Amino acid sequence: MSALGTATTRPQKRRLPLWDNARWIAVTLVVIGHAILKLIGEADVAYTLYLFIYAFHVPVFVAVSGYFAKSGPPDARQMQRLLTDIVFPYLIFETIWTGLRWILGGKFLLDYSSASWTLWFLLALLIWRIALPYLVLLRYPLTISIVISIGAGYISSIDGTFTLARTLGLLPFFVFGWKLRQWLLTDTWLELRAGLVWRWRAGALGLFGGLYLLITLNIETLRELQVRRFLLYDESYATFDYSSWWAGGIRLAVILLAFALIVAFLMLIPRRTTWFSELGAATMYIYLLHTFLLYPLRETGVLDGPQPGWVLPAMIVLSVAISIVLSLPIVRRVMRPLVEPKARWLFRPGAATPTGTIVLPHRDRK
């Protein structure tokens, strides 16, 4: 199963509605976060919602990917999937974005080391999936990943090149997602009787409600403290004037809070099949394509400056609509060559041995 829920035409194990529901809601929150970005400078209510969403939605997205990641030595099929599911889409969409910026009057600069907008996630996912089998050989992979994340924030030379800052900064959430599967929490949760489920969900709602209230009451302070930049994990602490030794403690607090919010988020996700469960199989399409629909609003200046109060809810409704439309079968059918390129012509018909000879599948042997 692909980390982002793609590859719907390939043989699949039985899908759990819980995870498809979680995928679709998480990616829809990603769209909302991008859609309201231009509003946060002028409106505290938009900034409050933005900080609230960013406290958990990217960690959730990363954790879901980690949950389905394989930690054993990769076989030939898994290595091929890394290319077709991650590397090829990255190269395709980075090239498209370069061409689009050039057509709109920018300089033609094809630089695959600097990911355009949301494409950072593909590079990070590639590195996480490659690194996981090595990381889990160690005794305390989650603790080590937290130390790596905190330590990376002190090194100014770790920046956006090959999205390394975000890759290391968000690494704990990928490992946390993998640990959730090792702890068998999904099985325990799905088997829990309804009465206990609603008790846990009440606690989860209390956590989210308390967080939103806390942000609302302290929005000006949070704006001055530049908390938003801690939630992006894409630069060193010193870059935004947090050069003190204790800056890593803030990242640690943000990480631990996000762990709790990930679990609370999953508790609130419907365990049964819903109207959007099927849409959860198309999250890669939503993730890669929604930016093209939001780009005009983001770049034309139509959302710059103070906006009427109805604009924020309108952008939320628009985001949900975009997420639904990009999940439709017709969109997936048309865009599949770009989002899920098979590129069979690039691959050998069989796996290569260490000596370089090709071992054909049994059915191809004479």
Rank of each mutant, 00 (worst) to 15 (best):
M1T: 10
T9W: 12
T9G: 06
A22E: 11
W24F: 15
W24V: 10
I25H: 05
I32L: 10
G33C: 07
I36D: 04
L39G: 10
I40V: 15
A43M: 14
A46V: 08
Y47C: 09
Y54T: 03
V58M: 15
V58C: 06
P59L: 05
P59W: 08
S65N: 12
Y67I: 01
F68W: 14
P73K: 13
Q78L: 05
M79H: 07
D85V: 09
L91R: 07
L91V: 14
I92E: 03
F93I: 04
F93Q: 03
E94R: 13
T95H: 01
T98V: 10
G99S: 07
R101A: 11
G106T: 09
K107S: 13
K107D: 13
F108D: 06
L110Q: 04
Y112T: 02
S113I: 04
L119M: 14
W120P: 08
W120L: 07
A124R: 00
L125Y: 05
R129S: 11
I130L: 15
A131S: 10
A131P: 02
L132Q: 06
P133R: 07
Y134N: 11
L135T: 06
L137G: 12
L142H: 02
T143C: 03
I144G: 00
I144D: 01
S145C: 09
I148E: 01
I148R: 01
I150T: 10
G151D: 06
A152R: 02
Y154H: 13
I158D: 09
I158W: 00
T163P: 00
L164H: 08
A165W: 04
A165M: 07
G169V: 02
L170A: 02
F173T: 05
F173K: 03
G177S: 06
W178V: 04
K179P: 00
K179V: 06
K179A: 11
Q182G: 00
W183V: 10
L185N: 03
L192A: 08
G195D: 12
W198L: 12
W200L: 15
G203F: 12
L205P: 08
L207V: 15
F208D: 01
L214D: 02
T216L: 10
L217G: 00
E220W: 08
E224N: 08
L225N: 14
L225A: 15
Q226S: 13
Q226G: 05
V227A: 05
R228Y: 08
R229S: 03
F230W: 15
L231I: 05
Y233Q: 08
Y237P: 06
T239A: 14
F240G: 09
D241N: 04
A253T: 07
V254K: 11
I255H: 01
I255E: 03
L257A: 12
L257P: 01
A258C: 01
M267D: 07
R272K: 13
S277R: 00
Y287T: 09
L288Q: 03
L289I: 13
H290A: 02
R298H: 15
E299Y: 10
G301Q: 06
V302F: 12
G309F: 12
V311N: 05
A314L: 12
A314R: 02
L318C: 09
S319Q: 12
A321N: 01
S323F: 10
V325A: 14
S327E: 06
L328P: 03
P329D: 09
R332Y: 00
P341V: 07
A343L: 15
W345L: 12
P349H: 10
P354I: 06
P361N: 00
H362M: 07
R363S: 09
R363Y: 08
